[in-house]
Design a protein around this nucleic acid. Structure first.
Lengths: 214, 214
DNA sequence: CATTATTAGATAGTAGCAATATCTATCAAG
DNA sequence: CTTGATAGATATTGCTACTATCTAATAATG
């Protein structure tokens, strides 16, 4: 299929597709001449994944490139690729002033992960990310003890184990597993986030005896 | 306290504070002369909240303004204010081509909320947001039936009911409730999101027998 | 075969957002 | 009375995700 058809089927404008090609998000089509290239089903699928990561996951283009590069590279062992994907998905944590409160938050995170028995790399950036959240919660006056996160962690564990990892075809082709992981992490993460906000609304209505407007 | 001290204590540069004042995120200090204004503890607290919503919640400044305006306005009844906060927190859902698949996703969301027995406004933008996620999941080939979201919904319900709404002082002063709600929704939402990604890493390591690097 | 349309690839420009920077006219304090 | 800080206004920047334009080559069509 030519670029115009790729654009038509995906709904992504041609200049944007060219931009993704330039940025290395989309592999080039098979050149059939100096001014023609052939794109396939794979490109369409990739394009949809890019849009999902952008629009649903709100990942910056630079992160998407990292994710897709890890997915692409057959050299990387699967568990390293999964790690790359995880780390690319999170935002950059800007460094904090090295105060006692920050040390405490960071130590609490480490202790929490230890207590949960989770096998997580000691220098995983997600540790800093969680510490930052904990730190901010406390600086806003919330009583956010380490143990207050445990119910969240247990629920997360349950979700990941029973729903998300269970659906990833770890024995199938590598790129299928990679893509499933990305979809599971980003899209189901979003789904849960929205459901949680909907639940907030429903619960508020219940507690305040406010019936939703019809 | 003067603006320089406000800046020093919050870590936010003076030009940025001025920007927030201009944008109406931060109420002006009490003017003591043409070139002097006095800021208080309230401003410091507000500034911290703004930064939390920006950095942790990644809310755009325009949304933060809406949230804070709803918190501020004593006229708005509490349940309406909570609704405003919820809706401001979510992203704008760009309109979809009105295909059968979109209709189906939207209908599934409505049916799901009905089935859960949640009291949610029929025109809540979160319905569209969830439908978009469902739609995208399906367009990527995931088998995302309506029932696949039920476990997520039940977990969300549990979390919101037992942890988050329970800590909101609904009988106390209004702005305390509002702020607690914002913090609960945005910051604990983030905390859960990070914990979920950490759980992903731990579970990947477990399944792939890959031990984290030391 | 001539004309019109399409494409690859390169380069430049735009829109939106969150700041920063700069400037002036005051004040405040030593 | 001189130095420094501040309010308020206006302008500028840096970043990101596009979007537009141009050229040379090629394909499609009458």
């Amino acid at each position: 299929m030519r670029i115009s058809q790729l654009s038509a089927e995906s709904g992504v404008p041609i200049p944007t597709i060219k931009y993704y090609l330039r940025e290395g998000l989309l592999p080039p089509g098979e050149a059939t001449s100096a001014t023609r290239a052939e794109y396939g089903e794979r490109h369409l699928r990739r394009l949809r994944l890019i849009r999902a990561l952008l629009e649903i996951g709100r990942l910056p283009v630079a992160s998407i490139r990292k994710v897709l590069a890890a997915v692409e590279d057959e050299e990387t062992p699967l568990h390293r690729m999964l790690g790359t994907v995880h780390y690319a998905i999170g935002p950059d944590v800007e460094p904090h002033p090295d105060t006692a409160e920050w040390q405490q938050a960071r130590a609490d995170v480490d202790a929490l992960i230890d207590q949960l028995g989770w096998a997580v790399s000691p220098n995983a950036p997600t540790r800093d990310e969680l510490a930052q959240t904990l730190f901010t919660l406390r600086s806003l006056g919330a009583e956010a003890g380490r143990e207050s996160l445990i119910p969240y962690a247990r629920l997360a564990e349950q979700l990941v184990r029973e729903r998300e990892m269970a659906t990833i075809p770890l024995d199938g082709p590598r790129d299928a597993a990679a893509e499933a992981l990305v979809i599971g992490t980003v899209l189901y993460g979003k789904a849960f986030d929205v459901l949680r906000r909907i639940a907030h609304e429903a619960e508020s209505a219940r507690l305040l005896n406010a019936h939703p407007e019809h």
